[in-house]
Write a protein that binds this DNA or RNA. Sequence first.
DNA 1: CGGTGTCGTGACATCGGTGTCATAACGCCG
DNA 2: CGGCGTTATGACACCGATGTCACGACACCG
Lengths: 361, 361
Amino acid sequence: MATIYDVAKKAGVSPKTVSRVLNGDAPVNEKTREAVHAAMAELNYIPSSAARSMRSQKSGLIGMITGAISASPSAAEAIGLPEIFLVQGVQRVLAENGMTLLISDTGGHRDRVPTLIKTLLEHRVEGLIYVAEWHQEVDFAGLLGGRHAVLVNCFDSHGTPSVVPDDEGGQHALVSALVARGHRRIAFLTLPESLVARGLRLAGYRRALGEAGIAYDDDLVVTAAISDPAHEFDYLWDALDRVLNLDPKPTVICCANDKMAMRVYALLRDRGLKVGEDISVAGYDDYRIITEHIDPALTSAELPYAAMGMRGAEKLMRLIGGTTRPNEPLKELVSGPLAWRHSVKDLKETVTSFKTRRRDL
Amino acid sequence: MATIYDVAKKAGVSPKTVSRVLNGDAPVNEKTREAVHAAMAELNYIPSSAARSMRSQKSGLIGMITGAISASPSAAEAIGLPEIFLVQGVQRVLAENGMTLLISDTGGHRDRVPTLIKTLLEHRVEGLIYVAEWHQEVDFAGLLGGRHAVLVNCFDSHGTPSVVPDDEGGQHALVSALVARGHRRIAFLTLPESLVARGLRLAGYRRALGEAGIAYDDDLVVTAAISDPAHEFDYLWDALDRVLNLDPKPTVICCANDKMAMRVYALLRDRGLKVGEDISVAGYDDYRIITEHIDPALTSAELPYAAMGMRGAEKLMRLIGGTTRPNEPLKELVSGPLAWRHSVKDLKETVTSFKTRRRDL
DNA sequence: CGGTGTCGTGACATCGGTGTCATAACGCCG
DNA sequence: CGGCGTTATGACACCGATGTCACGACACCG
């Protein structure tokens, strides 16, 4: 590799002058500049960021630690996938700020995190982003080596800045929209009790009902997913059966996520019920490969991964730049849009044209 | 940050001795070593890889360029997603080799690649991995700055080492398995003609038929997907209609991918056909979030993303280490397993138990 | 007991940039 | 015409590691 000395010699100037041309931090004579540029082009010169960062103490690197990329080796399909949009969001913001992303992956082993952080610190990352596989509380304070850090899709109790999805708001928006279409008996098949998202979504559900003056009915809310990915939906049939046997029946089934909704479609079909006509279904996550291609297309609340990534990266940039806004919240809630599709019937619409529906798909 | 000099001073030795303790490249007295370790721990010392790589000319970094992470900004759902497993595979191998992954993303803009490569070269990556969004031919020779590089999910005509999916083999295995279950009229709804994978899969389809002594019937093969993601499946209804009206009818529909199969499920249901009983369906990709949760579960050929990532990274490690195997192929084909599920009926089985099917789901 | 080899250690240069300071040429002001 | 500010450039040290070489202390050999 050519060095700045090679360029200097070829252009007949001092290395420092080449440096000035590179960084534009001091005036350089037009002719000199051209000579330097020519020399750089000819030698195919690319400055070494290692050398530069040694002197300037700035690496231009941001480290990201995640288990979101490598789903756990055993449960390959369990987690993962849409979280990639999160990486994308982070990447986009960093690129705009001239930063490069260093990625480390836990491979599903949380206990590797200290080692990974150490590697990132060796590269003198200017900031760290930890991304969790799902909305949860974590505890890494102390490991961070004093670096600026942001938690994404998770939070801690040590005051580390974080960015989390607005689960409460998302479920609230979804249920409110259902109510607006005339639904009043809204079943809710929830996530396992251990998950943070479950509590928040349930709160959103209750708030939406409350605002509409609908009494909360405990029978309509059933835990339908199990934490163990191998048995995730083992109780789904039973959970659905319970809410369908209620009197009065629910007119819509809110599912904890789109995968569950996909299963519910099949179970409802087995019972002779047509989704979107005899009964409505809504999901969560807006995992488009499901929601847009299933029939009928699934109404869902988007879990805003890309936006969380961007918000997290922006927050980190502000931390590093010392431009944190005066009243910037420590924990940022990120909302996602509602994707309204044909799986939910509008009970206030007088006529439903079957033909229209099918063609829209 | 503490430096090696700080540690040396605190331990009462020379920096070089600290270096020796760190790298274990020369004998150090037991007591000295302990003193150094104590000093490092106390100062929370983490060596600077920038300084180290300057001296040793080794960065310990591998650069990856991809559009697979950021699906194109417009067609958010079009590409992407499972390709993340590819990143996972790469990561895993690199971690085993003590390398760190630098990720750059095109954000869907192919013309950013030169800039991204330049950034990676500034960080003196020891090797480059280019990952394409789908199996295709590319042309980056010349941009690579003489660095070791491997193309994944793509190839070029300049002799750059590459790793690609065995599309021909995958489709061949799938169709052979169908034939083994007694299917002889096998419809094939294919990808757009422009795609490399289409030709390969078609070849695999034909080879499987040939081996079984089944004549190739042009009418059974219909292009059913369009390149424009906004209109991807606009012709699907028509394509399916054509093959279903053939005489004799096909007993199984091979779809170009799982998304298409999902659509086909709905279209078949509209026609009153029960998938897995009246007619069989197979997909491609084995995108598990679809294949395992749809009803009936979808038979599919896996597009082995994780394996491709690992193979690509391993190839790169061998290139860098100069341990390329004597007869190592320039272009490696990666095969994936067949995921056999209930969407395909076994025509050689006398009785099909409906109850069993449903419970298995 | 002198020669040779291994162990244990440090001085010093070096990797490729950039910060600091010095210097020279030039134009402008009073 | 002397003093001063600006422009343009270079000499030199330094960032934090490691490679090279040298040196002293022993142990072992003949």
